[in-house]
Amino acid sequence: MTSVGLLYPGHSAEDDYPRIAVLLDSDIRLPIFHTDIGVDAHRVDALMEMGSPARLAAGVEELRLAGAETLMWACTSGSFVRGWDGAHEQTRELAKAAGLPASSTSFAFAHAAQALGVGRVAVAATYPQDITASFAGFLRAAGIEVSAVRASGIVTAAEVGTWGREQVLELARAGDHPDAEAVLLPDTALHTVAHLEELEEALGKPVLTANQVTVWEGLRLADRRVWAEGMGTLFARPEDREWVPA
């Protein structure tokens, strides 16, 4: 049994995680604690507060009691907005509070791209322009080239959570770039897991999405490698991958 504890802000697309659990091995658990989102806004001040130590610490003990072996701050903007060093400090404090290996969705994107051998990406984000640019800067700090950036200007997670299949596919298509080896959709409030295979088929390249990479990173921290159908290239066996890095 492997248990990845998830600190998830508010309520928008957390139902992606039970869907992931069904697609993965039956001995993987993904217990969730919902942190207080505070002001629901993709603004720097609101995002800094959303990822503050006090808000994150609130769910640590509950997830420890649930048997979590690793801990994920299941939020992208609430981590990368602090910058490369600030995001590292955030996860260090979380690991210290939990006594467990910890990471965040921002680092999950960087590590997942590196694991696939991806050096150039396109970012297709729901966020406003300034927040999207901040994520691109975070990726560049990780040594990843950003070929294109698409910002949708959505201010609240609540609105993002209402997006369906057509909007997700259109976002990915609009954000793609010929030079990009993968397309990244960085918002855990966005429902994407049901569309991963269709997204990759439409774009002809790996697509990394926030809830997908969050679980992958938590399993990586637990030294657990899992292959699963329906979860995109990231979870495909190497011999089954139709895409190879350029």
Rank of each mutant, 00 (worst) to 15 (best):
T2H: 14
G5H: 00
L6P: 03
Y8H: 03
P9A: 15
P9C: 05
S12Y: 06
A13C: 09
D16F: 04
Y17P: 10
P18I: 07
P18S: 07
I20L: 15
A21I: 04
L23E: 15
L23T: 11
L24Y: 04
L24V: 10
I28F: 02
P31D: 02
F33W: 10
H34S: 12
D36N: 08
I37C: 10
A41T: 01
R43C: 07
D45W: 13
A46T: 03
A46H: 00
M48V: 15
E49D: 12
S52R: 10
R55E: 02
A57M: 02
E61T: 14
E62M: 13
L63P: 00
G67E: 08
A68I: 11
M72E: 08
T76D: 04
G78W: 10
S79M: 06
F80A: 02
R82H: 11
R82V: 02
G83L: 11
G86Q: 11
A87Y: 11
Q90I: 07
T91F: 03
T91H: 05
R92L: 12
R92I: 08
R92T: 15
E93F: 01
K96T: 14
G99L: 13
G99I: 03
P101Y: 06
A102K: 01
S103Y: 12
T105A: 13
S106I: 06
H111D: 12
H111A: 09
A112E: 03
A115K: 04
A115S: 14
L116W: 04
L116N: 02
V121S: 01
A125P: 03
A125N: 05
Y127W: 10
P128S: 12
P128H: 09
T132N: 10
A133H: 14
S134W: 00
F138D: 05
F138E: 05
A141Y: 07
I144A: 11
S152R: 15
I154V: 09
I154H: 00
I154E: 09
V155K: 05
A158V: 10
E159Y: 03
T162P: 01
R165V: 09
L169S: 01
E170D: 08
A172K: 06
R173W: 13
D176K: 09
H177I: 10
P178L: 06
D179Q: 09
E181A: 09
A182S: 09
V183N: 04
V183C: 11
L184S: 12
L185H: 11
D187F: 01
D187M: 00
T188M: 00
T188Q: 00
A189W: 00
L190K: 09
H191S: 08
H195S: 14
L196W: 08
E198L: 04
A202K: 10
P206A: 07
P206V: 08
V207H: 09
L208H: 04
A210G: 06
A210W: 05
V215Y: 08
E217P: 08
E217A: 14
G218H: 06
G218R: 06
L219H: 14
A222G: 04
V226S: 11
W227Q: 11
A228W: 01
M231D: 07
M231A: 12
M231C: 14
G232Y: 03
T233N: 02
L234C: 06
L234I: 07
F235Q: 06
A236G: 12
D240C: 00
E242F: 12
P245E: 15
A246Y: 13
A246F: 13
